[in-house]
Write a protein that binds this DNA or RNA. Sequence first.
DNA 1: CTAACATTGTTAAACTTTTAACAAAAAGGC
DNA 2: GCCTTTTTGTTAAAAGTTTAACAATGTTAG
Lengths: 228, 228
Amino acid sequence: MRKMGHESGNINQRRHQQIPLAVIKRLPIYHRYLSDLHQKEVARISSSELAAKIGITASQLRQDLSWFGSFGQQGYGYRVDELLQEVSRILGLNQNIGMVLIGAGRLGRAIIHYANFKRRGFHTKAIFDNNPDIVGEIIDEIPVYNISELENYLKSHAIQIGVITTPASAAQEVADRLVRCGIKGIWNFAPVSLKVPDDVIVEHVHIGESLMVLSMKLQQRKEQASDD
Amino acid sequence: MRKMGHESGNINQRRHQQIPLAVIKRLPIYHRYLSDLHQKEVARISSSELAAKIGITASQLRQDLSWFGSFGQQGYGYRVDELLQEVSRILGLNQNIGMVLIGAGRLGRAIIHYANFKRRGFHTKAIFDNNPDIVGEIIDEIPVYNISELENYLKSHAIQIGVITTPASAAQEVADRLVRCGIKGIWNFAPVSLKVPDDVIVEHVHIGESLMVLSMKLQQRKEQASDD
DNA sequence: CTAACATTGTTAAACTTTTAACAAAAAGGC
DNA sequence: GCCTTTTTGTTAAAAGTTTAACAATGTTAG
């Protein structure tokens, strides 16, 4: 059933090259559309159909997937459930990843609720804050501890990701403390560029930046319109 | 004082070409660092110093700026206040842009507070929601109206940007209604790809996608580590 | 079972973005 | 004032990304 390459053993020949960042960023989008299709009980889809839905070229979709293997069948297309599973695996979903969140303000609370992290295997195990009024609270079944407990907590619990939703002024110090405790992944919502060692990965969610980009694009349109 | 090109009238020769998206996305970062420097009362900076702070090459910084004009001086560098002002202008900041926000849940409330939108000229004028319990509330001096009032409100107020912080299921309908009222800019936090006409600009803040990218990068590191 | 069709994975070309190199020119020291 | 140093804006080369083209191959209908 599975394809056998006519040249021997070329499955995943590119595995050891670095996957382009551009490709990585598209995978979550593929995941979203495949989840949708799966939920609608669509069994199969061709690269051109899926690409059209997403708004990219079929060529790009096939090229992207080819970085990870051969998941389709000539003359048939892709099985939605199979491809969804592969993409999930590539993304590292459903692996029970432990997270802690630092900064229980409005943004922190919103993030805890947002989307279906839990369903995808991301579990927030503890929240930390420096405001004594909210320490001791339980938010969505997750306890809020004093920030001074951070190091102690991380020593005794398996946590892979730290989420920073503090004000900008506190973010770097929190990042430093997370790094010192061995955390290798930081999901940062504070509007500062964190300095961390090379072996730590920071994903920065650019909220303010994004509004500025929108503002600039609007501005450009206005200028173009008045030029013609 | 200002540079005169030795070839006649080549100031902003590229003005009518499309600015690359990659360049646009870096401008808010330049803005942030320049604001920092300005606040610290640094008067001048060279492209290499600034680039080093940001973590890019000096070449890229100069190339990016050259899309918009010549703001530096050979042998001296850039005046921080001047460059900050230019970048702000390019980004369309400080122009008193009116926004409405739809969806007064936790995320919506967090966004209203986040960062210094107001200081940069972005003013949220009204909030809309379909939950009668919160209609009538005042959040941060901004009134919450029933979503049914949306069209009426937009008819009588100058609004440039609509912010969508509704659940995914409601986002497309809200977007359609905003578009029908003539809104040209949408800042979308719901995890759906909105379909809008070509003359409307959507900026999507990819919260969930970003966590998946982090997860995937961590996964990759793990695989690399176990390979060696 | 065969032939026409559909669709993949891949190779190559086109395009975009980043980095390097350098002439031109202003700054700063002597 | 002149010479050395600094640093820009720009041109050219390198690297990365997207799109197009197509041989290989499984699917489907008759």
